[in-house]
């Protein structure tokens, strides 16, 4: 589904990603772990098309297509979804309006008719129930005045409504208490599907207690320094990121 080849990225002349290689197959769940400043969030922004980064080398193929040839919206329409670390507030725009505009944008791209308003509302309400979200959220402005946990839940709600094929979750676990973390993780697990892939970007192992990854990659100093199965996350948790540095040094 996603193939990252020798990706080099700089910001203001400073190299952040120094030759990333990754291959994510359809239906797989990959966790990318690493210390602060290792370039984890940069990777998620690059994949979703945020401006302000210089791609100096390498390429990314998404279902065989050159991802860098696609605009931000085109990537979204094609099924790339980023759950933001810091979801953005859009004052005055209700959640339901936002969701509907997003879904219809994607449906239009897929050549589907706009969803009937009644069908849309009942579909969304069903998904909110699963995420233990009050229906009142639909009529509140997007993320405005939401608590950290509410914002993250809202991201997962959007994900489940838009049904993307590649889900990038950027530190979705940060700022969540254990109950909220469980709800969010359940929401993600419900979306696991042989046709859908996930990239979980996280600092801590605890998210992976709830969402079992197929593969774990350790990102440090702009490079994937180690890849392995779920056991690698546990190893990291025990040894800490200093262990990565030691291994690099040796």
């Amino acid at each position: 589904m996603l193939k990252v080849e020798n990706l080099h990225v700089s910001v203001d002349g400073k190299e952040i990603l120094k030759g990333i290689n990754l291959e994510i197959g359809t239906g797989e769940v990959h966790a990318i772990m690493g210390p602060n400043g290792s370039g984890k969030s940069t990777l998620s922004y690059i994949l979703s098309g945020r401006e302000g980064y210089d791609i100096t080398e390498g390429r990314v193929l998404f279902n065989g297509q050159d991802l860098f040839e696609m605009s931000v919206e085109e990537r979204a329409w094609a099924g790339v979804f980023l759950a933001f670390q810091y979801p953005v507030e859009v004052p005055g725009v209700s959640n339901i309006y936002f969701l509907k505009a997003a879904l219809n944008g994607i449906r239009k791209f897929q050549g589907l008719a706009e969803l009937d308003a009644m069908d849309f509302i009942s579909m969304v309400k069903g998904k909110m129930k699963d995420l233990d979200m009050d229906e009142k959220f639909l009529y509140r402005a997007v993320n405005e005045g939401f608590s950290g946990g509410e914002k993250k839940r809202n991201e997962i709600l959007q994900m489940s409504v838009l049904e993307p094929t590649l889900c990038l979750l950027d530190e979705t676990d940060s700022g969540l208490d254990i109950d909220a973390l469980q709800v969010v993780a359940e929401g993600v697990n419900r979306l696991r599907d042989p046709k859908r892939s996930f990239v979980l970007i996280t600092h801590y192992q605890r998210l992976l207690d709830y969402i079992k990854p197929d593969y774990v990659h350790v990102l440090a100093h702009g490079k994937v320094v180690k890849s392995g199965g779920p056991e690698l996350a546990l190893e990291l948790e025990e040894q800490g990121y200093a262990w990565v540095d030691e291994k690099l040094a040796s």
Binding site: G49, V72, E73, W77, L82, A102
Partner: peptide
């Protein structure tokens, strides 16, 4: 960026 990432032009 947030809106566009959700497929809104």
């Amino acid at each position: 960026f947030y809106c566009m990432q959700r497929g809104i032009s």
